[in-house]
């Protein structure tokens, strides 16, 4: 055993530990959401109805599909089908970019209506409404940042596959990126119903 010795199981183990920390990072925002939602169910219902469910649903499909393509890329790499693996990686990046573009249109519509953290419009609206939109921007913003980091990560690994540094014999970096990407996906699976769907059920 030398310092250069490789431990794929250890690398994946470390990644899982890191994913724990991500879950807890987001859970702070979820706790805030739960507490505020319980205090202002009506405001939350009205504010939630103002979100664009069509784009939200579309993005959910986009992100779920991107998780599928990245998983396919891992399988392709393990079968030593480098071209297919690269293709699936590129597909994932494309889907991730589509997600961010959709998010951009969604945000810019809201911002053009004067809805953004610290805006005068929100300062004048009901406390629950302001809290809902602030949390909406903070949570989807933090999630968007994770998508962006994921894109950079996948592009880096794609480059390493091209140069043969990540391969069928040594796939752990791609596997770990996939784990990370699934987590980003999983968080969205909580964010989407929490903001777009559930609060509407609390109409008085």
């Amino acid at each position: 055993m030398s310092i250069e010795h490789r431990d794929d199981t250890g690398a994946r183990f470390g990644m899982w530990l890191f994913l724990y920390t991500e879950v807890i990072l987001f859970s702070g925002l979820f706790v805030l959401f739960a507490m505020t939602q319980a205090r202002f169910p009506e405001h939350f219902a009205a504010a939630s109805a103002g979100l664009n469910t069509t784009i939200g649903t579309l993005n959910t499909f986009v992100l779920l599909t991107s998780s599928l393509t990245l998983s396919l890329s891992v399988t392709a790499l393990q079968l030593n089908k480098i071209r297919q693996s690269l293709l699936f990686c590129s597909g994932t990046v494309l889907l991730a970019v589509i997600f961010l573009v959709n998010k951009y249109f969604e945000w810019s519509t809201e911002i053009s209506h004067g809805i953004y953290p610290g805006s005068d419009h929100l300062a004048e609206s009901a406390p629950g409404t302001a809290a809902f939109f602030n949390l909406y921007f903070f949570t989807t913003g933090l999630h968007g940042l994770h998508i962006f980091i994921g894109i950079v990560l996948i592009l880096t690994v794609t480059g390493m596959i091209i140069r043969g540094k990540v391969s069928a014999e040594c796939p752990v970096l791609l596997v770990n990126s996939t784990l990370y990407w699934h987590l980003v996906d999983l968080i969205w699976i909580f964010v989407f119903p929490l903001f777009y769907l559930i609060p509407r059920g609390f109409h008085g």
Binding site: T21, I24, G118, N134, L135
Partner: peptide
């Protein structure tokens, strides 16, 4: 530690945007 991370980020965001999530006068806690 991640819980401290998100809490400090929220303090930072409150200072930049004034969202009022922790401000009792604006419905925060």
């Amino acid at each position: 530690t991640p819980m401290l991370g998100i809490t400090l980020v929220l303090v930072f965001l409150e200072r930049i945007f004034g969202a009022g999530l922790f401000d009792a006068a604006r419905g925060g806690d």
